[in-house]
Design a protein around this nucleic acid. Structure first.
Lengths: 313, 313
DNA sequence: TTGTACGCGTTATCAG
DNA sequence: CTGATAACGCGTACAA
């Protein structure tokens, strides 16, 4: 690896001068500057980020924490973060936590050890472990009064789910609620059920675990009690779809189904899934922008959602 | 951040002694050692990886290059790499290249700047850009005589696709070939077509672009000429499935379809997709193991594949 | 057994 | 405008 020292030797100046010439900082006569630049190119010089990080006590790396990258919700989010990072000359250190608090703590420490410039996290237990980090933190799809966050408009999304099913003529609606502890899921459920109650539409809220149990027991009768189902996300909707298909219940004529997320695969299930699109990629980009933003930033950043109508409703 | 200097001050010894005590290197009296360890814990000391990297000219970070993490093929691979890396106290710097050679070059340089200990890559044009890297490189799903590689047994996979369709009674088989330039796709096609030819089964090979054109033109007649379709991967199979479903061609009774990969979603399409499973997660783990393996390593590492029979055949 | 001193590559300060 | 030097945090010869 060629260093500024090599360049200095080549050109016959001091490392200080090389550094100044390379960084346009301080002064450097245009003659020397040119010679330094030429030598740098000739010797294939690339600055050593590690040395820079050590000097600055800060690297151009940000830590990104997700529960599990295999969960199809996250890749596009990460892609958004990375694209934004790339544009700003930052790189990404990736960590999967499996929502395990020990893994989270370990990664937080690793990020710290690596002088990471900031952290973007989509994990849940993290609030207990993120304690006194000195670097900025942005949470995605998660709200915490201590940190800046980016989320989709889950309330509105829930209302859209409800409104759409009503428009399509549903009269008895099942709302499958996602895990209680996640604010995003909670808000969707609240948005949908409030709207349904306001409109005096018959509805029942059931948590995802018990609905899955019902499917395991092949309790078709339960589902026949409804003509519309609001799912907490697309992945869950795939399961429901699959179960109803197997039991020869026609979708959408007998039961209409709507998801949440708009994963790529929602185009491929049968019938194609109607869903509420949340801008996952953009949320990633936004999270990065907030992370490096110097000036005053909003604590809560809520991105809009929209209905994507397909064949399941 | 507390450093060894702080510990030294606390305990009243030199930084050298602290370093030795912490690393069990050189000598340190057990009394001092204990005091150092206690102070380290008390002060919440964590070693600074950046300083270590600088000193060693090597970090505990590896660079991982994929075309696009949004492509559902890659997340599980990355997860495999990360799990293995984690077990060995390494971290992952992630780069998406979009198969753009400039992005690849840029990331290669970034990895270099960050003293990365090695590189795992799943991108294709990289062979032209990876030139004289001084760190180990492992390619996934890609073969190159210069580097160590991990791949699935694509030949065998192709033969499995062919055999299975034959077993299920197909007589006129369409093989959709993936992009010619990727050895993995090429080998699948070769495996399948050789087997079909050996067995004198009627078959036609067509490239994926032109088949997609046929679907765009809604040329159902073309597809009706076959009773079995071998797809280059699961994603492509979803498209075919969707097209045939729309055109009311019954699967599997009229046409049988088999994919390749066994993505998670193959369980959710309708009918559920029969496919050849390649061990993507394990390939990631294996790639990492090879990367840090010191002793003699195989140039080509081929992992086994298996038939996953579902409802589309 | 311990401390001093140096180097890893970079940037900033300060004196010339 | 330029060069010598200190500093970032760590690890290791070498001297004591």
């Amino acid at each position: 690896m060629t260093t500024i020292k090599d360049i200095a030797k080549e050109v016959g100046v001091s490392v200080a001068t090389v550094s100044r010439a390379l960084n346009d900082s301080g002064y450097a006569s245009s003659g020397v500057k040119k010679k330094v630049l030429d030598a740098a190119r000739k010797l294939n010089y690339v600055p050593n980020e590690v040395a820079r990080s050590l000097y600055n006590n800060k690297s151009r790396v940000i830590g990104v924490l997700v529960p599990d990258i295999s969960n199809p919700y996250f890749p596009r989010m990460i892609r958004g973060i990375e694209d934004a990072a790339n544009e700003n000359n930052y790189r990404i250190l990736l960590g999967n936590t499996d929502q395990n608090i020990d893994k989270e703590k370990k990664y937080l420490e690793i990020f710290h050890q690596n002088n990471c410039a900031g952290i973007i996290t989509a994990t849940w237990t993290v609030e207990k472990s993120i304690q006194n980090l000195k670097v900025p933190v942005v949470m995605i799809d998660r709200v915490n009064d201590k940190y800046v966050s980016v989320e989709a408009d889950n309330f509105k999304g829930g209302r859209i789910q409800a409104d759409h099913l009503i428009e399509q003529g549903a009269k008895h609606i099942l709302i499958i609620a996602g895990p209680e502890k996640y604010s995003s899921f909670r808000n969707r459920t609240i948005g949908a059920s409030e709207r349904l109650n306001d409109l005096k539409i018959n509805c029942e809220v059931k948590d995802s675990i018990s609905v899955r149990t019902l499917m395991d027991k092949s309790d078709v009768k339960f589902f026949r009690g409804f003509d519309g189902i609001i799912c907490p996300n697309d992945m869950y909707a795939y399961e429901v779809l699959s179960f109803l298909n197997e039991n020869n219940i026609n979708i959408p004529s007998e039961i209409k189904i709507i998801g949440f997320d708009d994963l790529e695969f929602s185009k491929w299930v049968s019938p194609e899934l109607t869903t509420v699109r949340q801008p996952i990629y953009e949320m990633g980009k936004e999270a990065f922008a907030l992370l490096i933003q110097e000036d005053e930033k909003n604590k809560r950043n809520i991105l809009d959602v929209e209905l994507i109508q397909r064949k399941s409703t």
